[in-house]
Simulated assay, not measured.
Amino acid sequence: MADVVLYEKNDRIVTITLNKPETRNALSKDLCEALVDAINKADADAGVSCVVLAANGKSFSSGGNLHEIKAMTAEQNMTPLEIENWYKTGIQRIPLAFSQISVPVIAAVNGHAIGAGNDLSTMCDIRIAGEDAIFAESFLRVGIIPGDGGAWLLPRIIGQARANQMLFTGEFIDAAKALDYGLVSEVVTNDKLLERAYELAEMVVGLPPLAIRKTKELVRTAQSVTLKENLDQAALFQGVLQQLDDHREAIDAILEKRKPVFKGA
């Protein structure tokens, strides 16, 4: 059987591709496990500076696997405690893995990003969409809640009012509205989606590798600390980065009007 998640490294860019098009990349148990493993693998590789998250088939992800969800109570008679544990040891590992990865992740969203699929896109640092992309927080349509961090992530990206509208109505929004909401930063034609994702990734990896990771950390921790604490952290990071050869190379390249050559040191 083909791998449910594909992993490919090219120079300093890793492409992670959801590869269950027959289920529209529903986040089944095997796909969740494989995705977490792929994210952790990229994070552990010092030779990686950016990740592109893509999907094979007509959809980015249709969300949770409804057959697995139905089987919890209809067939397996799982108790509330067992269901709680299923989430904690399964799909909730995905947002935790994304919250720890130290390099930027770019989501290339094609087709439907529904429920947990929409939430998966919000776990990424940059989101671009094909013109046919459709987004929805559809959990209430099946009588459940966002169990994968969507209620935490979405308001921080598009604001509480718009997040509430998506969460409480389950409405489907197209790529144009997603752009207006700030859910994505760009909409491109479907045939240019991956091309644009790689253009952005190349921009990222053309910058000093350690400074990329420190910027990601500074942005991430800013969500939970005071301005003073964030400034203190920034000063600490600057004290390290400005001692590196890559910092000196960056300045010299600008002054000498040439392309820099970074070594990650």
Rank of each mutant, 00 (worst) to 15 (best):
A2N: 10
E8V: 14
I16F: 08
T17V: 13
N19V: 15
K20L: 10
K20A: 15
P21M: 02
S28Q: 07
D43T: 04
A55V: 05
N56Q: 11
S62G: 01
G63K: 01
G64K: 02
K70D: 07
E82M: 13
E84A: 07
K88T: 03
T89A: 04
G90K: 06
L96A: 14
F98G: 03
S102I: 00
V103W: 08
G111W: 01
A113Q: 02
G115T: 05
A116R: 05
G117L: 08
D119H: 04
D125V: 10
R127Q: 13
G130I: 11
A133H: 12
A136F: 05
I145K: 15
P146L: 04
P146H: 08
G147D: 01
W152C: 03
L153R: 14
L153Y: 12
R156W: 01
Q160D: 12
A163F: 11
T169W: 11
G170A: 15
G170R: 10
I173K: 06
I173V: 14
A176K: 09
L179T: 01
D180E: 14
V184R: 00
E186I: 00
V187E: 14
V188H: 10
N190M: 02
L194K: 06
A197Y: 05
E199C: 00
V204K: 00
R213C: 03
R213T: 02
K214D: 10
K216G: 01
Q233R: 15
A235M: 08
L236N: 14
F237M: 02
Q238D: 03
G239Y: 07
L241R: 12
L244R: 15
I251M: 11
D252W: 09
K259V: 03
P260V: 04
A265C: 02
